[in-house]
Amino acid sequence: MEVYSNENEQVDALRRFFANNGKALVVGVVLGVGALVGWRFWSNSQDGNARVTSAAYQQVTSALDASKPQTLAAASKFASENNNTYGALASLDLAKQFVEKNQLDEAATQLQNGLKNTDDANLQAVLNLRLARIQLQQKKADDALKTLDTIKGDGWVAIIADIRGEALLSKGDTQGARDAWSKGIESDASPALKEMMQMKMNNLG
């Protein structure tokens, strides 16, 4: 009802404006109505485009199979042609497939491309967390730590602490790893994640 109420108020305002200012402003009113119609057309077009893009994303990602190069190529093409959230999600899905094929460089590239396609902070965090894990597998601990530093938000503290501990330990910084996991345990982490970090600390001796 709120939408209809606002539209009615806008129409009433146009009517009053026209009544008070006479026929001399007909052109202005027509242009205003034209702009409104144009905006609605554009909005409806955007909604339609989003639905088409969503359907295309579902199609290419549901067919993804690491053993079938053509499905990887199709998803990669979709990701490169869609500089939006769907493109970023496709890059995320592709990265998983490349990790399964142990093609870590390609997986990292997909995640980095995905980061360019979205402004959503939570999706960026997920992409960066995956990227940091891959960088660890690539023996690039310093790169992983830099990637973790870009992630903002209290909801990611525990996961960041877990990966940071792994990165620091791989560099031989046992105390740094202990401090990172301790911070993770003290955060609002899930019981399972806290237990896992506690076990890692215990293994340090």
Rank of each mutant, 00 (worst) to 15 (best):
L25N: 08
V26K: 12
V26C: 10
V26W: 13
L31P: 07
G32N: 07
G38K: 02
F41V: 14
F41H: 06
W42V: 15
N44I: 09
S45T: 06
D47Q: 15
G48S: 11
A50K: 11
A55G: 08
Y57K: 07
Y57S: 11
Y57G: 07
V60S: 02
A63Y: 01
L64H: 02
D65M: 07
K68Y: 08
Q70N: 13
T71W: 00
S76V: 03
S80D: 15
E81Q: 14
N82A: 05
N83C: 02
Y86F: 13
G87L: 01
A88H: 01
L89E: 05
A90F: 06
A90L: 08
A90H: 08
S91K: 03
S91D: 15
L92Y: 10
L92D: 12
L94W: 01
A95S: 14
K96I: 09
Q97P: 03
K101R: 13
K101Y: 01
N102T: 11
N102M: 08
N102G: 02
T109K: 14
Q112G: 06
N117V: 03
D119I: 07
D120R: 12
A121Q: 11
A125M: 09
L127P: 06
I134M: 06
Q135P: 04
L136E: 08
K139I: 06
K140P: 12
A141N: 13
D143C: 10
A144K: 09
L145G: 04
L145W: 05
L145F: 05
I151S: 11
G155V: 08
G155K: 08
